[in-house]
Amino acid sequence: MTKVIVLSGYGLNCEEETLHAFNHVGIEGNIRHINDLIESPKELEEYQILAVPGGFSYGDDTGSGNAFAQKIKLALWDELQAFISRDTLTIGICNGCQILVNLGLVPALNNYGERDVAVTHNESARYQCRWIDLKINGNSSSPWLKDIETLHVPVAHGEGRFMMDDKTLEQLQSNGQISAQYINDNGEFAKGEFPVNPNGSISDIAAITDKTGRILAMMPHPERGMFTWQRDDYHELKDAAQRGGSDLFEESEGMEIFKNAAKYFS
């Protein structure tokens, strides 16, 4: 049976709704405090999926995700490497994305553990909580994103701006490691334009993977857009359904990501 471990502690704060998403698609799992996992790191062997949820680990001090990544690197690195070398899936959402980037699990162009890109302060230097649209890269081989074309989900972050040098960007592009990009209302790339690109991210990047695609780091929150009632246009959809005498879909687009995880192991 597929099991997910969702990390918690030190200011991570989306662990409950993230586990709820996995549970909804039939994946059982546990929320584990990072200190407990460090105490008994062998536990990782029991799981097929690792989720690092959103939050504000260490208050974003010294750079979002940095301190938590340092902690993992110093205390849990070997076990983590063993985990990702198995046929497992890893997802980092928002603060989890920042942690995976600082751990060097993505994009890991040469080796796992080396930082190739940065996720830093929004261009506006301001926290942004808003709904955005994503185009999923057709080149991406990530099992997390299989058969998904676009996603309507929210972002909520102060440091979501991917930065990297041109060479790294080219490599990511040619490897298909850029998995999701911000688009505007017409479905075109945001081209850095605020607010459709909420943070000034280079090449409108919202999510990247490692080379295998099994490790996904995304700034937007699929677990906050997994049910129709969570959507910003819920009241419009609800009203239209009522007029048309139809039922609302319970699930929304964000759930597809978690369903893909279930499919991968089925």
Partner: peptide
């Protein structure tokens, strides 16, 4: 102000601070 405050963490937001298109 509304966009600076995380209003959908915990996945619980139904009707938020900014309404309609």
């Amino acid at each position: 102000i509304a966009t600076q405050y995380d209003h959908n963490v915990q996945g619980s937001a139904v009707l938020g601070p900014l309404q309609g298109i």
